[in-house]
């Protein structure tokens, strides 16, 4: 598999995921570039992996929870941001603010489920957790979002997507 083609096919999805985890456009862009830089260093082996994209998500996941690195990213972000970014809508601001209140595992499950359309079973495989645990993460994540959004009674759980 060619690295450039892999990048072209997967980078947008990874950016979605990173944005969902961090809620910060600049940090998400940087995490994605960092993850692909590390993938390029390991490309000889990674190209043979069944799920190299899952490897990238693991890297992004780890980097996103690495407080030291996040501080470093924030320091350098102004210079590294590749281009102008349109301001997010009010809904997005509220959602990412609410996401930041959640535990990392809940955030990860929600991002995989809602942004990458992964099923409960697929999330279980990727995270190494049981399907019951994943369902619990999603359920508690939704409840956490509802509480943070102040819409506890109104937020639909999106059960139609929970396969």
């Amino acid at each position: 598999m060619d690295f450039d083609a892999f990048y072209r096919d997967t980078s947008r999805r990874l950016l979605r995921y990173a944005y969902g985890l961090t809620g910060d456009p600049g940090e998400a862009q940087d995490l994605v570039q960092e993850a692909y830089a590390r993938a390029w260093q390991r490309w000889r082996r990674l190209a043979d992996y069944e799920e190299p994209e899952a490897w990238l998500r693991l890297v992004v996941n780890r980097l996103a929870t690495d407080r030291w690195r996040r501080l470093g990213v924030r320091r350098s972000r102004v210079l590294e941001r590749p281009g102008p970014v349109d301001p997010p809508s009010e809904d997005v601001v509220l959602l990412v603010t609410a996401m930041r209140t959640l535990p990392a595992a809940h955030r990860r499950a929600l991002a995989l489920h809602y942004l990458l359309d992964r099923s409960v079973a697929e999330i279980a495989v990727e995270t190494g957790a049981s399907t019951g645990t994943v369902k619990s993460w999603l359920s508690r994540g939704r409840a956490g979002l509802a509480a943070a959004l102040g819409l506890a009674g109104d937020v639909k759980e999106g059960a139609d997507r929970a396969r």
Binding site: A28, G83, V92, D154, K156, G158
Partner: peptide, 20 residues
Amino acid sequence: ADLDDLFDALGRNADALPLA
């Protein structure tokens, strides 16, 4: 108030971000 809609908006926002 639908999480699907909120995440769709987040996804569209992510898709619009420039990427090196």
